[in-house]
Write a protein that binds this DNA or RNA. Structure first.
Length: 597
RNA sequence: UGCCCGAUGGUGUAAUGGUAGCACAAACGAUUCUGACUCGUUUUGUCUAGGUUCGAGUCCUAGUCGGGCAGCCA
C-alpha cells in the first residue's frame, strides 16, 4: 500500500515503511485481533521533546495512519514532583506541529474533562475512555485522569491476593530486593490478610500515613531472575498536589502499574516503547492478566531509540546546556529539541523523512548526522523559494551603468517547480557580491571573480573585473567592473558561457538584516561519551552577520522557507523578528563539494 | 559473573531457508546562469567456530563483543 503525503511540495507517494513492529501490526490486522489499531505517544510532562521523541511519534502515528487507526497523545503524569503544565503545553504544540498535514486525523484526544466510563461487557464491569469526536472540545489524555480506575484495579489485585501493603522503608525494600545475581527475600508484610491490606490501602489513600511509610506492592516472586518481578511497587505515598489532578490524591501509582492500565483504559492495541522497558514487559503482562479484564489486552513492543552523531539527546545534558547558558534556551536553534528545530526552520516533513530513513529495529545504532542533513536539504530543495542575499558584502561598481538606472530582471523563484514563476530583481550601478566570491590571488580551480576575470551575475549578465580598489590597510573595499549587457537573458549573447556564476544584490534596493549562521553544536561525533561534554562545544556554532537581502525578502513570513542562492536554506526567526526588522536563521548550508577540496 | 536484548559495507537498513539489495557518505564523471539539484560510474559488508540442510545473513549449539535491568523516576 502506498501513502500519499499532504505536505505541500513533499515527495510523491512513497511505499509505506516496513519494519518488525509494523509486521506485527499487519499480522494482527490480518487476524482481526482488534477492531481498530490504536497506538499512543505517552511522554511524561517533565521536559521538552526532541528529535529522539520524534522517532517514536512518527512510528506510533505512522502505524495508526497506515491502518486507519488512531494514536493517542497521553501524558504519563504519575509523578507529580517532576511535572508541570508548562511541559504539557510545549509537548502538545510540538506533537501537533510534527504531525500537521500528515497524521492530524489520527491524533487521538479525549473530550475535555472526560474520565473513563463504567460499562458492562458480557455481564462484567469494565472501564473505557473513548476518544473525542472530530470537532468536539478535546484535550490530550492524561494518566492522572485514571487515578480512580487505577485505584480500583489496585483494590481488585488486593482482593485477588496479588498485592499487599508493605511497611518496609525504601532502604529496606532495596535490601530485600537482592541483586541481579542474588535472589531477594520476602517482605515480612507479604502475607497480610486481604482484609488488612484493604484497610491499610484505604487509609493510605485517606492520608493517614506520611510519605514513604507504606507502599502497595504486587505479590509476584522475590526470587525471580527478572528484578522487575520481585514484588514491584505499585503505589507510593506522596503528599503533594498534582499539576493536572489537583490535591485529590496523596498516593500515586508507579509507571509500571499505571502504564499498562492506561493503555487498557484507552483501548490501546500496540504499546510501543524503547528498549530499556524490555525487562518490564513481563510485569506489564502480569498486571493485565492478573486482573482478568473483559476486553482484548494491549501488548508492548520495544525498539531502539534514535542516536545521531554530533548530537546530544540526554535530557539532563540538554538541561545543563540551557542552565549554563551555552545556548539561549530550550528553543535554541542549535538544540535537537523540536522547538529548536522548528525555530531553526527545519520542516516537520524533514524530521518525518529522517524517521523513515532510519527505520525501526532493536539495534542501538548511531545515525550519521549527514542523513538528517540530507533529509532537511531534500525537503527544502523542493519547497524553498530562491532568493538573492549576500552574507558578507563587498561593493562592486558596474562602471558602464549610469548611476540612476535600474534594470529589472526576472529571477526564478524555484527551478524545482513544474512551472517555475519569477520575480523582478533590480540591477543597479552599485551591487554587493559575496566577499569570498572574489580572490585577488585565486587558488587553483577557482572559478569565481578575479582581477581581469569574468563571471556571471546570476540572472543578470556577465561582468569583467577591471579594477580592485583597496583601503590604506590594503584590504579590498571595492571592485570596478564592466557589465556586458548583451549577455542578459534574451540578449544576443545570452548563451555565452563563463565558468562562474555568483549571487549578488543591488546596493540601492537591498536592505541590511541580521542573519544567524548556525553550525553543529559539538565538534565531536559522540559528545555524550564523556561527562565534560561542554569541552567539545563548537565555538563557531553561531555566527551573526549583517547581510544584504534582496528587497522582496522584506515581506517574508514566518512560515516561508528560502534558499539564499549558493548559500543555504534560511527562514525567519519567529521569536526575534519584528515588523520591518526581520532576523533570519540559517537552517542548513547547501552541500558544498568545493569547500571540501 | 543472574536475567533479557542485540550484531549485515564508513553510517543507517533490506533480504521472513534460494542472485546479499537500497539510502546516506566517499571518489570519479556528465550536466548546470546555484561548485546546489539531477544523472551515471566506482569503492567497501553478513562477529567467530562448529552443526542441520541440496542450499544458511536467516535455523541450532557454543563463544566473542555491545547494550539494558537492582528508583517509593519514566
Amino acid at each position: 500500500m502506498s501513502v500519499a503525503s499532504n505536505d505541500p511540495g513533499a515527495a510523491p507517494a512513497a511505499p509505506a515503511p516496513s519494519d518488525f513492529i509494523r509486521d506485527i501490526v499487519a499480522r494482527d490486522v490480518a487476524e482481526q485481533r482488534y477492531p481498530t489499531i490504536v497506538t499512543r505517544f505517552p511522554p511524561e510532562p517533565n521536559g521538552y521533546l526532541h528529535i529522539g521523541h520524534a522517532k517514536s511519534i512518527c512510528l506510533n502515528f505512522g502505524i495508526a495512519r497506515e491502518n486507519q487507526g488512531r494514536c493517542n497523545l497521553r501524558f504519563d503524569d504519575t509523578n507529580p514532583v517532576k511535572e508541570d503544565v508548562e511541559y504539557v503545553e510545549s509537548i502538545t504544540a510540538d506533537v501537533r506541529w510534527l504531525v500537521a498535514g500528515w497524521a492530524d486525523h489520527c491524533l487521538g484526544l479525549k473530550p475535555r474533562g472526560a474520565t473513563p466510563a463504567k460499562v458492562t461487557l458480557d455481564g462484567r464491569e469494565d472501564h473505557y475512555l473513548a476518544p473525542a469526536a472530530a470537532g468536539a472540545a478535546a484535550e490530550a489524555f492524561f494518566a492522572s485522569d485514571y487515578f480512580e480506575q487505577i485505584y480500583g484495579y489496585a483494590v481488585e489485585l488486593i482482593r485477588r491476593g496479588k498485592a499487599y501493603v508493605c511497611d518496609l522503608s525504601a532502604e529496606e525494600t532495596d535490601a530485600y530486593r537482592g541483586s541481579p545475581d542474588q535472589p531477594g527475600r520476602d517482605s515480612p508484610y507479604r502475607h497480610r490478610s486481604v482484609a488488612e491490606n484493604l484497610d491499610l490501602f484505604t487509609r493510605m489513600r485517606a492520608g493517614e500515613f506520611p510519605n514513604g511509610a507504606r507502599s502497595l506492592r504486587a505479590k509476584i516472586d522475590m526470587a525471580s531472575p527478572n528484578i522487575w518481578l520481585r514484588d514491584p511497587l505499585l503505589y507510593r505515598i506522596r503528599h503533594v498536589a498534582h499539576h493536572h489532578a489537583g490535591d485529590k490524591w496523596c498516593i500515586y501509582p508507579l509507571y509500571d502499574f499505571a502504564h499498562c492500565l492506561s493503555d487498557y483504559l484507552e483501548g490501546i492495541t500496540h504499546s510501543v516503547c524503547t528498549l530499556e522497558f524490555e525487562v518490564h514487559r513481563p510485569l506489564y503482562d502480569w498486571i493485565l492478566q492478573s486482573l482478568d479484564l473483559p476486553r482484548a489486552l494491549p501488548h508492548q513492543y520495544e525498539f531502539a531509540k534514535l542516536n545521531i552523531s554530533y548530537t546530544l539527546f540526554s535530557k539532563r545534558r540538554l538541561l545543563q546546556l540551557v542552565t549554563e547558558s551555552h545556548v539561549s534556551g530550550w528553543d535554541d536553534p542549535r538544540l535537537p529539541t523540536l522547538s529548536g528545530a522548528r525555530r531553526r526552520g527545519i520542516p516537520a516533513s524533514a524530521i518525518r523523512k529522517l524517521a523513515t530513513l532510519v527505520g525501526v529495529t532493536k539495534f542501538e545504532s548511531v545515525t550519521d548526522v549527514a542523513l538528517f542533513e540530507h533529509a532537511i536539504r531534500d525537503e527544502l530543495n523542493r519547497a524553498a523559494a530562491r532568493r538573492l542575499a549576500v552574507l558578507r558584502p563587498l561593493k562592486l561598481v558596474l562602471t558602464n551603468l549610469p548611476a540612476g538606472e535600474t534594470i529589472l530582471i526576472d529571477a526564478t523563484n524555484n527551478p524545482q517547480d513544474e512551472q517555475p514563476t519569477t520575480r523582478p530583481v533590480a540591477l543597479t550601478r552599485e551591487v554587493y557580491i559575496e566577499a569570498e566570491d572574489f580572490a585577488e590571488v585565486p587558488p587553483p580551480k577557482y572559478f569565481r571573480l578575479k582581477p581581469g576575470g569574468e563571471v556571471r551575475l546570476k540572472y543578470a549578465c556577465i561582468i569583467k573585473c577591471d579594477e580592485v580598489v583597496k583601503d590604506a590597510a590594503g584590504a579590498v573595499v571595492e571592485l570596478r567592473c564592466t557589465a556586458d549587457l548583451t549577455t542578459r537573458a534574451g540578449g544576443p549573447n545570452a548563451d555565452r558561457k563563463v565558468k562562474g556564476t555568483i549571487h549578488w544584490v543591488s546596493a540601492t534596493t537591498s536592505f541590511g538584516a541580521e542573519v544567524r549562521l548556525y553550525d553543529r553544536l559539538f565538534t565531536v561525533a559522540e559528545p555524550g561519551a564523556t561527562d565534560d561534554f561542554t569541552r567539545h562545544l563548537n565555538p563557531a556554532s553561531l555566527q551573526v552577520v549583517t547581510a544584504r537581502l534582496e528587497a522582496s525578502l522584506a515581506d517574508a513570513r514566518v512560515e516561508d522557507r528560502f534558499q539564499f542562492e549558493r548559500l543555504g536554506y534560511f527562514a525567519l526567526d519567529p521569536k526575534d523578528s519584528a515588523p520591518g526588522r526581520p532576523v533570519f536563521n540559517r537552517t542548513i548550508t547547501l552541500k558544498d563539494t568545493w569547500a571540501k577540496a
